[in-house]
Amino acid sequence: MSTLTAEPSTAPDPGAPGPNGAPGAASLAGAWRRFLLRRAGGLAVNLVLLLLVTFLIVQLIPGDPAVAIAGESATLAQVELVRTQLGLDQPLLVQLGTYFAGVVQGDFGDSYRYRVPALDVVAAAVPFTLSITLIAVLLLLALGVALGMGVGVATRGDRHRWLDLSFNLVTGLVSSVPTYVMATALVAVFAITLRWLPPAYSPAYGFGQAAILPIAALTISGTCSVARIVRRETAVILEQDYMRTARGWRLPALSLYAKHMLPNLLTTALTLSGIILTALLGSALVTEAVFAWPGLGGVIVQAIAIDKDYPVIRAAVFVIGLISLVITLVIDVILGLIDPRTLGEKRG
């Protein structure tokens, strides 16, 4: 038998971050700096692209944009008026320069319909859309994670097959209901049949009362989608070696799931929440129509389908794009705070 008595060799382990931990902290600060620099650069590029896209909305209209915008029944004079108003008679680069200069000062031009700055029309609608979307996302993440994790833990290793089956059935069915269909169903039941809640927005009702159904419509099916994903993820995490390590420490269920599993699940949930938020923003645009909700959806549909109000379209598209970008950035910052490893990932 060999003797393995005294000190181990003092050769440093390869790949170790340093002798005394300080480099670890420094590298974290460095990771944050690189992350913020990269994201600031990415944000700038995305803003320029957004400006280009909104500029091109008018340029890409097939045929003569001025004719298309003024409408088929417009007189020649009206068409020319539109042309000069939008600067469509200028060379393309001049138009682009004027557009950029205007946007930088928050000027997208005046709305054709309302005769006020287009940005004001959009700004008035933003709080309505953003409030229901943000509340819905927070709700559906909390509910979806709780439901998915609970069912995932309860059905681990094929326990409670009935729960597994009914969870799959219910969440599969509910998550297949489009939000605007869900909204319509909610109106039919809670506003028309039961008369508990107002069917549509009106200044007469309080915001809170009128917002319940739109928020519910956005939350319910999303909760099921998130719960399904979280449940799958829970099953994967439960099989990870580190969960076995935690079981080896004989930790009680609360500590096992709340402390050792949840943070790993949160990374998934937060990564998801970026996708969900931008997608929900899109859903909200459509769902608002059910409730005559005075948000961006109504503004943008009115501007496209009825008024051909291009300054408003440009402003609305720009603002929604900006909101998506900011949301993505905020979520990545939160992710970085929870799990510094995500800082190095190339996203956005």
């Binding site: 998550s175 099916s221 994903i229 994967v236 997608a279 929900l280 859903s283």
Partner: peptide
């Protein structure tokens, strides 16, 4: 919400 969240998202944690 099938209109928004991809129903099939590959597992984020690898199960190796």
């Amino acid at each position: 919400m099938a209109d928004s969240i991809p129903s099939v998202i590959p597992s984020v944690t690898s199960s190796v």
